[in-house]
Structures are given as C-alpha cells and as structure tokens.
Computed example of a mutant assay.
Amino acid sequence: MKERRVAVVGYEAAELLDIACVTTSLGSANWYGASPPYHTRLLTPGGRPVTCGTGLTLQAQEALERVTGPLDTLIVSGGIGHEEAAANRVIVAHVRRLARESRRIASVCTGATVLAAAGLLDGRRATTHWQWAGRLASRHPEVIVDPGPIFIREGNISTAAGVTSALDLTLAFIEEDNGSELARNVARNLVTYLQRPGNQAQMSMFTAPPPPENTLVKRVVEHIASNLGGDLATAALAAGAGVSERHLTRLFLKHLGQTPGRFVRQARTEAAAQLLVSSSLPMAAVAARCGFGTAETLRQAFVDRYGIPPSRYRLAQASA
C-alpha cells in the first residue's frame, strides 16, 4: 500500500472545524513520518465549493459522485447543514456506496445523521453532539444513540461527538495505524491532549443544563444535583415533580436524550469523579456521599462510564 486514501465528505453548511481537525491531524502525521502516508481529499457534491456554517468558502478537491474505492478511511463531517445533507439522496447514496469500499468509516459530530440516513448505524451504538442526540434517537430508533462518550468505535464504524472530538478520534486512528509514539508527536504538535479516551464524557451534566424554557426538567435536574445521596428513583422524582413516571421519562428523553435513571447514574458518577480527585475520602465514603450505597456499585458505574475503576482513575489524576 503506497498511501492511505482518506475521503472527508463535506456539504453546504458543514462545520469547518469538523473537517480541519481531521485533515490537519493527518497532515501532521505525514510530517512525522506516517507510513504509508495519508492522502486526504475533501469530497463534495459535484466537486463544488461549499460555504461552511461559519460563512467561509471551502474548495473541494474531488466530486463525491466520481470517487471510487478502495479507500482506507471515509469520514463524514457534521455541521448545521447535516439534516439537509441527510435528506439529499445523492449524498446518502454515495456515502453508502463508498462505505462498502472503505476499510474504516467514521462521522464527526452531526455527521452521524448522514451515516444513520444511509443505514450504516442500524443496530449499532453511536454518538453525536450532545445537543442533537435526542433528535437522532427519535428519527432513527434503529440506532442505539449514546450521548455520553466523545467517540464510539464499533467494528469498522466510528462516531465522534461534537466538533473537536474529531481530534480525539483522528489521533486514535493515527495511533492504531502508526503506533503511540507518532500519535503522541502529532498531539504535541497540535498542542492537544492525546490520552483522552473515547469513553470520556463529552459534556458534564454540571455544564450542560437542560433548556431553561422547560422549567420542570430544570427543577428536577437541580434537585438531583443537590440530593445525590437521597432517593432519586424515577418514581420518587416523578412524585416530587407532580407528574407520572412515564411523562417524566418522556421529558428527559426529549430534553436530555436519556432517561431519568440514566441521568441520575451519570450525575452520581461524575460527582464521584470530582470527589476522587479533590479529596482523600476512601471509596466507601465517596460511594455513600454520591448515592451508590457500596464501593462495588460505584466501581461498576465508574467502569461503565469511564472504562476504568475509580481507584485507577484517582491514581491517574494524581500523577497527571
């Protein structure tokens, strides 16, 4: 193999950062000696220039319809134009076609909407920008949408969360292809963080409050955040809010992209992560303070969310 052919798909109102994070990272990998080197091309419908969501015009290098495989990697960018792109039969058909001819397929941010429209995410766990996760889940119930991680890799298909998570996913690809040392050099060159694992949360519940116009959801979330050690079962939350469990669950799915139970587990796990770093409390005390009951329950929740046990997380943060 003389080169790794990489196709990045853009369209009208695509996000420039979604594209640049990928192309700049791969270009930097070439500079550090990626072997074989990456040959990256921007594909657009008809090969026409596209105006990005920020208003800047980006020149395409090839027409989406004319490119043929085999490709090493196919990456679909996101952006505010993603829904129109997903409704465009030409774009979707050629993404589907090129996916069959690619070793590795990925999307960045809301590019997952295009992969979903092409049927490439059916039955798979996938992520997207946290603001769009609920909409993706409702429009494509066949996709297992997880709004938590910064990226998810299932087989040869990967989905990355919002915007700069493209850096994390591309660095993971570079490390897979060329080893950790070269990927580390690229990360240093880009002045970014190499070791941010894909299962790290893309958005903390403490910095991503629900839309302020939904006062009921906001009130319940505030109650959860201030009563992590209390009874936060869905039934108790619904009773406190004066609604049925079913209605509360529907509201949480609509505005937060997850059920009340899952949100509570996330809030408790994130609070535990903060305590592990900011205090010397033993595991049992951290678990009790955050509402887990036992250290083992905390461990299971922590591994599910962060991929490592809390003890290892504490050590890693202490030595960082």
Rank of each mutant, 00 (worst) to 15 (best):
S319D: 11
S165H: 08
S35K: 14
R124H: 00
P70K: 14
N227W: 07
A187I: 06
P282K: 03
L167H: 08
G291Q: 02
N156R: 14
Y193N: 12
H140D: 00
C52D: 07
D122K: 14
I152W: 02
Q200D: 13
L315I: 14
I105W: 00
T249L: 00
A284M: 10
A318C: 02
F173E: 08
D177E: 06
I80D: 05
S25M: 10
L58D: 03
T57W: 08
G123S: 07
A7N: 08
L216P: 02
R268E: 06
E101R: 14
A301R: 07
S180W: 11
P37A: 06
G257V: 04
A238M: 11
R139M: 10
Y38G: 12
N178L: 05
I91K: 09
E154P: 03
Y11L: 04
I91F: 07
P209N: 09
S278K: 13
R41H: 14
Q266C: 11
A87S: 13
A320P: 01
G291L: 00
L17Q: 10
S25H: 09
A172R: 05
A233R: 15
S28Y: 12
V163M: 06
G307M: 07
I152F: 02
G293E: 14
M283L: 14
A285N: 08
L228Q: 05
P282Y: 02
G55Y: 01
L253K: 13
T40G: 01
S311M: 11
V90S: 12
